[in-house]
Amino acid sequence: MVLITLVSSDEQNFPVERELLKQSGTIETLIVNMNLDDEDTDAAAMPIPLPNVKGDVLEKVIQWMEHHKGDPVKEGDNEDNNAEIVVPQWDDDFFKPAMYGSKHLELTVAASYLDIKNLLTLSCKAISNTFKGKTGPQIREEWGVPNEFTPEEEEAIRKENEWSE
């Protein structure tokens, strides 16, 4: 079993199975281009630095990849298709504790950076699900967004979108 070491921005090392890393477009490209999975070369021992991902977030990413080991890797463009996306129960439980917190957002950013399409889609979907049935002020409160609108602005938006209320 080939292990490849990932190094987080806070310099924690995470030895990860080569197979798992196929879910990450970014790392996979790096591995292939630099022959990092060739055990006969010195490159194999070379750790992969991930300066944009903190250790705790990377740990969660790896945990997610371990659970989804063997899942088909999404290909093509980054856009999610129109089919209804359902967040599976395990993933829902995985995201839920951190929902509305910075860690979930950092996980989403990491999924984007590492190009893990399935994780990104599910993570974004989990966030979008939190908007359902909420009002603007409720979303603001939950996601830490300051209220910038004047009453007049808010009224103008409501007017513009009157049909959707």
Binding site: F131, G136, I139, W143, E148, E153, I157, N161
Partner: peptide, 8 residues
Amino acid sequence: LAVRLTCR
């Protein structure tokens, strides 16, 4: 609508 009313 709620999303639009969240912030500018």
